[in-house]
Each structure stands twice: as C-alpha cells, then as structure tokens.
Design a protein around this nucleic acid. Structure first.
Length: 235
DNA sequence: AAAACTGCCAACCGCCTCCCC
DNA sequence: CGGGGAGGCGGTTGGCAGTTT
C-alpha cells in the first residue's frame, strides 16, 4: 500500500482511499440513472476513477438510501448477539435482520464490543457459551408460550414476528441446518468471546428499561409497527 | 500538557460463488 | 463443460478522535 494518505491513484489508474463529496455525487448520479449493479461499468459511464468493488462498497455502506447512522439500540445489540450465536460471523445474513444497518457496521460493532474480550480457555468456552444457550432457550420458551396462549390478540402477527426473529433465512438454514448451538467447527471459534456478562449486561439493560418486554411480548403494543418494520428481512 | 491508549469507522484485500459466453 | 469476469462476503488495516495516565 502506498500509505493511507499517500494513496491517490493505485495500479491500473484506480483511485483509492477516502471518497470525496464529488465522487459520491458521481456515484449517486450513476445509480440514479442506471440503478444498482454493474459496478464495473461505473468508471466508464460516470468518469469516476474507482473500480467496481470500491463503488459497490461505497454505495452499500454509505450512500444507499435508508441507512441508519449512529449508535445501535439495545434491541439491535441484542439481535446481533442472538443471531451471531446462531450463525457465527455471517455478517451479511445478520444485517438482513437489521434494516438500515450494514454488514460492515455490524462487523465493526462486534469486533469493538465483544471480540476484544480475548480468547477463553477450553473449559471457559463451554461455560461462557452456555448462558447464550439458556437465553436462546428462554427465547424459544417464550415463543412457545406465546403460540400456546389464547389471548385475543392476533396470533398470526405474533408468530410472524417471532418466526422472523428466530428462523434464519433459508440460505443460513441450509448452511447450518437447524440452529445448532453445540460447539463445533472453526467457524464458531469466536463465539466464546461473547462473554456471559456481555449478554447479561445487555439483558439487564433491556429488562430494566422494559424495552424488550414491551417491545416483544405484547403484540398490541404501539411498537408493533416498528417491530414489523424492524424485523422484516430486507432481501 | 503531552504521551499513550482505546474505540470507532471507512475502506482495502483476498477468497469464494455465481453467471455468462 | 470450463474459463473468466463480476459481485458478495469476511477479515484486516490504518487513521482519527476521544479518553486516560
């Protein structure tokens, strides 16, 4: 690499490094005209001296409409923890359940908040992973009880919501079959880094604020619309 | 006040998969 | 059917800003 600030034009004439407002404008104009995709032709059509991958990344992570900026909410944090426990580092898959958030953002968030905790020993692995299991089971139990309950609320919507949360996308299901939380494989090596106290702290936070319960258990709650919006995967 | 540390984030790289010719 | 290009994804890097020592 030619040094972070020194990089201007890389091999083959492509520009690298931070995007300028002018470049952003060119890229947005291109997408407005031609739509997303065909990134490799951006340079030819717009005059942008960026390769296709760079254009795609900039669009997906920064320019795309509907992107949320700012801190992740406790709900989003919880979803990340939960889904990472299920699927591991499938950032793009997890991102589908957090509308407006990018895989890059989630990945960065995970690294800064959980990965830093360090690698536990073999014994610790099992111990520290279990709280997640119980959280997951708790989650399932609640779902079951909700499905079995005979409230007057519209159960189809409840099912819709919980199903959306718990069932991974088909692709992910095919990869890992059912949400199998046993310890296996290198892919899940990082899971122990989700320390029990991290999950507990998050749980405390949402429980204290009554966020999760109000958000989740009561389908007639005002948050329902938000829930449906928040948990519809944006494929 | 300054150096060291830490967190955050944008953007790159390499690998893999998919699709078209 | 196979090769090559494009796109997608996860891992990694490095700069900047805020915080701590």
């Amino acid at each position: 690499m030619d040094g972070m600030m020194g990089w201007r034009v890389a091999d083959e004439g492509w520009r690298k490094g931070p995007w300028t407002p002018a470049e952003d404008k060119l890229l947005m104009e291109y997408v407005a005209l031609h739509g997303e995709g065909r990134w490799s032709s951006v340079a030819g059509c717009s005059g942008l001296k960026r390769n296709g991958k760079s254009c795609r990344l900039r669009w997906v992570n920064y320019l795309r409409p509907g992107l949320k900026k700012g801190q992740l909410s406790p709900q989003e944090e919880g979803i990340i923890i939960e889904l990472h426990a299920l699927w591991g580092n499938k950032w793009s898959t997890i991102a589908r359940y957090l509308p407006g958030r990018t895989d890059n953002e989630i990945k960065n968030y995970w690294r800064t908040h959980f990965k830093k905790k360090g690698k536990p020993s073999h014994n610790e692995k099992k111990q520290k992973y279990e709280p997640q299991l119980s959280y997951y089971n708790q989650y399932h139990n609640v779902q079951e009880s909700m499905n079995n309950s005979t409230t007057s609320s519209d159960q189809s919507e409840v099912h819709n919501y919980t199903g959306m949360m718990i069932e991974p996308p088909q692709a992910a299901l095919q990869e890992t079959s059912t949400p199998d939380l046993t310890w296996h494989g290198s892919q899940q090596q990082q899971n122990p880094c989700v320390m029990a106290q991290d999950v507990a702290r998050w749980w405390d936070t949402v429980a204290e604020d009554n966020l999760w319960s109000g958000f989740m258990w009561n389908p007639d709650h005002d948050h329902q619309a938000v829930m449906e919006q928040s948990f519809s995967p944006c494929f």
